[in-house]
Each structure stands twice: as C-alpha cells, then as structure tokens.
C-alpha cells in the first residue's frame, strides 16, 4: 500500500475527493441563513438540543454548519480561538467575518488537497453590520472556496427545493417573523425533512428546529438563540409575533438565550394572549429600569467599558476647563 500502483490524474483525484465530501454533506439536514430587516437569521433542522449547528463566534459574528459534527465542531472552536486571539491582541473592532472566512478557506483548502481526507462540511460565517447593507454572509465549501452571498444561503442535504422555495418568496427587509416562517416552510419542502417516511408536507415544529439571530439592535454581543415559548409564538400561524423582545430574559443564566414571550407589537391579539402579555411586559420593564441598557453593554472590554460619550463628559472636558 505504500507505493502508488497506478497513475491517478490530479483531476480524478480532486473529483474523487469532492464526490466523497459532497456525499457526506448530503446526508445531513439543511440549514438556512438569511438576512431580515434587523439582522441575520439562522434556521437549522436539528433535533438535538445539545449538539448545535449554529453558534456564536464573536460580538457580531456567528457560524452555521452542516456535515460531520466532529469536523465542524473543530472548525467552530478554531474560529472562536481565532476571533478571541484577534480581539485580544488587537481590538474587538478588528475581528471581522472576512478575516475569519479567509482563515477557514485556507484551512479547508489545505486539508482538501493535502490531508488524507477532506472535511465533509459546509459552513457559513456571517457578520451583522450597522445597517443591512453592512451585513456579510460568507459561504465556505469543503474545498476552501468562498462565496460572498447576499440575501440567503441554503446548505446541506437536498438544497434545490429549499433554494427554489426561497428564491420565489425572499425579499430583503422582511420582519423576523416573516423571514422565519418563510425559512421554516422552505426547510419543510425538503423531502428528507422531518421524520423519515413522511411525505415532506408536514411543517417543522419548534422541537425540530434550531433558531438563532444576530440582532443589530443589541449591545456588543449580538448573537441570541431563540427557544421555548418565544419560538413557539414566532412560529404560531394563527397568532404570530413579528419580532423578539428588545430586552433579554430577566432570569439569571446564559445571556445568549431568548425564551420569554413578552412581545406585544400587534394590537389585534385576542384578549387571552393580550392579558398574558401585559402582565409579563410589566415585569420586564421593571427589571430593566435602564431600558435598552441591559447589563450586557460594552462593559467587558476595559477600553470601552463605558459608553464613549459618558467618558468625555466625565474627564476630558472638565480637565480642560
């Protein structure tokens, strides 16, 4: 086995490797990444609560992947290490999705050509900008090619029907609720979606979905997972809400999870839910007395631990005077 018995052309070698990687990726369930009016939405069909396909990388950057779990998990951790190293040795604002996408591309490309076996993964690195023009979505494939995508990306098993469904319905500046409903119905169009044996007509429920957002409006760390009652409510066809609450969950715990159904944007809710909502909303307003200023502001960076304006008023001006 040590010597090569026959000549294999580079074309054939690359083709075999690509086929191998593609086959591995096609076995998985799909992930959709799309931008909506206030940020970037990630929707994955994922029946596991613990093994995530979507994850936070840095303040404005998130990661989504399909394929072999151990391989994309390795890439995810490497990405977090890359971003934290960058931010630590330069500044938080110097960590960009483009830089990370490049590092991933080099790595995937090198593995594809040099290692014993290519990674059977496809990933998306997305960064939310100050406005929707600043949003960046990069799609990376097993061979290290990078594509700068606009609007939406579909990765995974049978992407064709999902892409078709999205292409006909996607418009930029949709609300979160609309974008999510569209993504879920598109994902449900995948014949392999849901339980095996189903014809694919059934819509995916909250228990089969992993949903996360990069929300432009949040301070510093923009990544939030949407779970529990909030996700159910966003997906509720008869009484949907269109956005997540502005404030984070008031309970102590991981800050990146939104579960409380506390939004009451629509005035035409029926009485029951209205009543329930007002009650909870009252709580939230109390909890976040400095509304919008959740404790999770810029404070974890010593250089920017207070809003800039306050610092100026504090020292700079008065020392001159």
């Amino acid at each position: 086995m040590t010597q090569m018995p026959f000549y294999v052309s580079p074309e054939q070698l690359m083709k075999d490797r690509a086929d191998f990687a593609r086959k591995g990726i096609a076995r998985g369930r799909s992930v959709v990444v799309l931008s909506y009016d206030k940020g970037i939405l990630f929707v994955a069909e994922n029946h596991s609560r613990a093994l995530h396909k979507i994850s936070e990388i840095y303040d404005r950057i998130a990661f989504a992947a399909v394929g072999k779990y151990n391989e994309f998990e390795n890439l995810r951790v490497a990405g977090i290490r890359y971003a934290d190293l960058r931010g630590y040795s330069y500044d938080r604002s110097d960590v960009t999705a483009r830089g990370l996408a490049n590092a991933y591309a080099q790595t995937l490309g090198a593995v594809f050509t040099q290692d014993a076996k290519p990674f059977e993964v496809e990933i998306v690195v997305a960064e939310v900008g100050e406005d929707s023009d600043g949003d960046q979505i990069y799609r990376l494939t097993y061979d290290g090619s990078v594509a700068d995508e606009h609007g939406f990306v579909v990765m995974g098993g049978t992407t064709e029907p999902i892409e078709q469904a999205l292409r006909s319905r996607y418009t930029p500046h949709q609300s979160l609720g609309e974008a999510l409903a569209m993504a879920v119905s598109a994902l449900s169009a995948d014949p392999s979606a849901g339980e095996a044996g189903e014809s694919g007509s059934a819509r995916l429920g909250p228990g089969q979905l992993e949903v996360a957002i990069l929300d432009r409006g949040r301070p510093r760390r923009k990544f939030r997972r949407i779970v529990g009652p909030l996700l159910e409510r966003l997906l509720n066809e008869s009484d949907p809400i269109h956005d997540v609450p502005d404030t984070d969950d008031p309970v102590p715990g991981p800050h990146d999870t939104l579960s409380h159904d506390t939004v009451n944007h629509d005035s035409n809710h029926h009485d029951e839910s209205n009543h329930h909502d007002t009650g909870e909303q009252g709580d939230v307003t109390q909890d976040s007395a400095g509304a919008g200023d959740s404790p999770r502001h810029e404070s974890t960076n010593p250089q920017t631990q207070r809003p800039r304006t306050e610092g100026e008023v504090d020292g700079g001006e008065s020392t001159q005077g």
Binding site: R81, A103, Q106
Partner: peptide
Amino acid sequence: MSERLSAAFFSSGGSSFT
C-alpha cells in the same frame, strides 16, 4: 496572514483561552 490555521487552533478538549 492567509495561512492555514495552526494545529493549536484544532487541539481538542481545551476551553481555556490562556
């Protein structure tokens, strides 16, 4: 800068930045 990420980025099991 555009190089493959080194092996340290892919070492398994570590969740400590230090």
